[in-house]
Simulated scan of single mutants.
Amino acid sequence: MAVPQLTVDERSNALLKAQEMRSKRMELRKKLKSGEIKLTELLNDLDNEVVARMRVKYLLESLPQVGKITAKKIMEDIGIDESRRIQGLGHRQKSFLLEKLA
């Protein structure tokens, strides 16, 4: 499949949108780390595009006292691929995550 040719305006709009999404995701991760937002709230907020498109790996690493190694181990135990996004999680995977981290 060929990459679509974008105009200069379309390209700059896409870059601005990507930058905005990264900023929102960073804010969300900070709130999760500080405890302002709970994991259950995020897993149930799939209408929010920022949450839905976040990788599970980064979500877990944003939790207090969960680093890269712990996040990887949790994902391996549950059977979640490293590239999986939150919107792609099944009901069982979500419940296992909540069970492990509650």
Rank of each mutant, 00 (worst) to 15 (best):
I37E: 03
E41Q: 02
E41P: 00
L42P: 04
N44K: 02
D45Q: 03
D45P: 03
D45M: 00
D45F: 03
L46M: 04
D47P: 01
N48E: 04
N48K: 05
E49Y: 02
E49C: 05
E49S: 09
V50N: 10
A52R: 09
A52M: 07
R53Y: 06
R53V: 11
M54V: 07
R55S: 15
R55C: 06
R55A: 09
R55H: 12
R55E: 11
K57E: 11
Y58P: 10
L59G: 02
L59C: 02
L59I: 02
L59Y: 03
L59P: 04
L60K: 08
L60R: 09
E61L: 07
L63Y: 01
L63H: 05
Q65I: 08
Q65H: 11
V66A: 03
V66R: 04
V66M: 03
V66C: 10
G67M: 08
K68W: 07
I69S: 06
I69W: 03
T70L: 12
T70Q: 15
I74G: 07
I74W: 10
I74A: 11
M75W: 08
D77Y: 10
I78W: 13
I78P: 15
I78E: 11
I78F: 10
I78C: 12
G79T: 14
E82N: 09
S83C: 06
S83L: 11
R84S: 14
R84F: 14
R85Q: 14
R85P: 05
I86H: 02
Q87A: 06
G88Q: 13
G88E: 11
G88P: 08
G88D: 12
G90H: 08
H91L: 13
R92H: 10
R92L: 14
Q93L: 02
K94C: 13
